[in-house]
Design a protein around this nucleic acid. Structure first.
Length: 152
DNA sequence: GCCAACGTTGGC
DNA sequence: GCCAACGTTGGC
């Protein structure tokens, strides 16, 4: 089982929204590196939910992958901001996963805190200028995070 | 609101 | 295939 970190702007979709919806297709990723990570996810993988573009940004909860190889429906929807006219139904460009809500942490772990605990090599989200919205999290890093949350 | 980082696009 | 222009992300 692998761990991931997935970013979302809470104005667009927050952990509270996911708690309400229980499961949701993680749509709108339009970056190939991020998509490749989505493609390599397996059932039961865990993902940290990261709130971006908010004060303070940080990890706010945990979710799990409940369905893999989901074709992102927004790529075919001309009304969607994620519409991709270059994608076709026979050859969809954008696959994603469906995630399920697990928990919202009592205390979020802010980016500032993450920078104190982890090096940029350990955790990509603390890399300066990092813009990737889906990234792997190493087992050791994930365990540290989960341990920290337990005693927060 | 600013701006650095950086991915994508398109002209050549 | 190069690279300048452009657009987006996301922290501050």
């Amino acid at each position: 089982m692998a761990y991931w970190l997935m970013k979302s702007e809470p104005d667009v979709y927050s952990i509270e929204d996911l708690e309400h919806d229980r499961t949701e297709i993680w749509d709108g990723v339009r970056n190939y590196q991020a998509r490749n990570f989505l493609n390599s996810m397996a059932l039961g993988d865990m993902a940290f939910f990261y709130h971006s573009n908010i004060k303070p940004p940080g990890i706010v909860g945990l979710m799990k992958v409940v369905e893999t190889n989901v074709i992102d429906p927004s790529q075919f929807d001309p009304a969607s901001k994620y519409y991709d006219p270059k994608s076709s139904k026979d050859k969809p460009r954008w696959h994603t996963v469906k995630v399920g809500y697990l928990e919202t942490f009592k205390t979020a772990i802010s980016l500032e805190e993450l920078r104190k605990i982890f090096s940029p090599e350990e955790l990509w989200v603390v890399r300066p200028g990092n813009r990737l919205s889906v990234m792997p999290v190493g087992d050791a890093v994930a365990e540290k995070l989960l341990y920290k949350i337990q005693f927060a």
